[in-house]
Amino acid sequence: MMTSDNHGDSNGQPPAAERPGGACTAARCVRRTPGRRDLALVVPGETDYLQLVRDFVTAIARKMGFPDHRVGEIEIAVDEACANIIEHAYGNASLRERVIVAHHGDRGAEAITLRVSIYGDRIELRIFDRGPRFSVEELESLDLAEVVGSGRARGIGSYIIRSFMDEVRHTYHPGEGNELTLIKYLG
């Protein structure tokens, strides 16, 4: 299932991507409500941090008791979502462009924030970026047979996100960025 809206989430948490500040990454664990645990990871929007994101997500999913093949599905869905942000929202900027951004003290604008909520029956992953409005249509239906038959690579990532997660929601926060919520249930 996939939905999209322009409103904040119902958990009272900040909608926008966080700035990493001086550190490259940050991970925190906060217990908010009984039976639920929240963790967060903030990384620069650069491809060499994707492995860190995957390691973070797979460690949590394994700890929750997801079987290996389900862990793999969560891993690839999150990786594809983050890679999509880096390529499209942040434009896969060159090293030179990144240095210029850093010198202007606005490096945090290219951060990706991943918030993970652990429930008894599911994992909820919310991915925040500060890019322009995400095109929801990119996550819409795809004829995989046509993609496979034609050897066309484009679209497989979006198909993976939509197919491998139980729920997919998109929220755009004007002036702040996108929030993509991915949910997978245990069992």
Binding site: D79, G151, A153
Partner: peptide
Amino acid sequence: TYICSTALGLMLQLFRQ
């Protein structure tokens, strides 16, 4: 240990080729 969708797409492209 991991393979992304773009790499899978390349495999399909090469398979056809």
